[in-house]
Design a protein around this nucleic acid. Structure first.
Lengths: 118, 118, 118, 118
DNA sequence: GTGGTCTAGACCACT
DNA sequence: GTGGTCTAGACCACC
């Protein structure tokens, strides 16, 4: 796994895990890998792995059961909320950024229609 | 002028100046403010102001005449290229990000049509 | 360490480090001294040391792992390319300069044969 | 006339004038352009033009007759000495630089033989 | 521990 | 007056 140097590793992995949650690749309520496993899997420092779960727990995306490990949230509402939040930020960045460059709403629509990245 | 804490000041000002160039608010080939003026205007340290011009010079957005000051590039092609580059990144981030969340192309178009941010 | 006053310190040290890379005195991919170490070793300011690595990173000669340090590039091609680039400039300066003074190719060869600087 | 930004303008023009002297394009003892003419010809600041002659006078390459203007030195020995000095520096830079990169004397000779820049 | 950013203040060469 | 370099010292995020 190669990480972008422009963003903290722990954030990059959090993004990955969020996407997995949203797509259902991580089942709601299921046990997540131990920090040690996580660290090994992504070849990162165990401290960094710990920080990832701590941060996600703060956002309500997972919780720990003492002695049992870390578990993904089982609230589908929470997962949907995260999805909406990420989408809203993507939309905000895109529309405002393009607008500042002088592109109109219809310009944006045309561009996306013609986009071949998908 | 208030700056976002999540991004270095010098990058934020570079973004500002790029937009001004793209919009024509800075005339191609014209003299830009001296580093000391820039520093005073944004209430930043002169070193930081110098860094801004140096970074922009590396991107070909301006050039310095020794002892005379810093001048905006007079290449309209270069300016257009920068615009395209920024737009391409916005588009890339948006379409890929949305796609990863499970939104289709037509979803995106609908969302933008209904967007009221503009 | 004494520095030439006619050239910025940071450039002089970059030249030194490039030579070390080319000669293999710095192993490809190996960790380079921390900026603080570098600063102490050459008795320069840590900021200046940081600038050295940043400049070299821009040239693709090294890269940083966040929180871990700066590492020499592991691309032998890149190192060879730098070597060729430096040599090409030396050759260019020499042959054109001598030519402008009126020396012919064979003059230059004779001069180098008789040179005792090596 | 476009000047390299990496070297002071006055030095670049001094180099030009030195070459002209060495090649005989400026006749020994002949009148050189007035500073005002020089400034106009190269579109530089008159102060810079003045500095050029001052610097060259310091090196014994020209002299001023009050009220008459600036004249090139008429000493062919002096001109020859300048030529040797420049050549010596070119040779020094080349041989030492190449040597530091690991090229031997015979490598250099081969390279020059095969050089097609001339 | 690592590098990255910023401020403050100084000196310098160039035009 | 212009930008370029350097020092000193501080704070921060990251691993």
């Amino acid at each position: 796994m190669n990480f972008d140097t422009s963003m903290p590793i722990y954030l990059q992995i959090i993004h990955l895990l969020k996407k997995k949650l949203i797509k259902g690749e991580i089942e709601p309520g299921s046990k997540m890998p131990s920090t040690r496993n996580l660290a090994h899997h992504y070849t990162i420092n165990p401290n960094t792995a710990g920080r990832i779960y701590k941060e996600m727990e703060r956002e309500g995306l997972c919780f720990t059961k003492r002695g049992l490990g870390t578990f993904a949230t089982d609230s589908k509402d929470k997962i949907e909320a995260i999805k909406q939040e990420i989408a809203a930020e993507l939309i905000h960045n895109f529309t405002l950024g393009m607008n500042e460059l002088g592109y109109s709403k219809s310009d944006m629509i045309t561009i996306i229609k013609e986009s071949e990245e998908l």
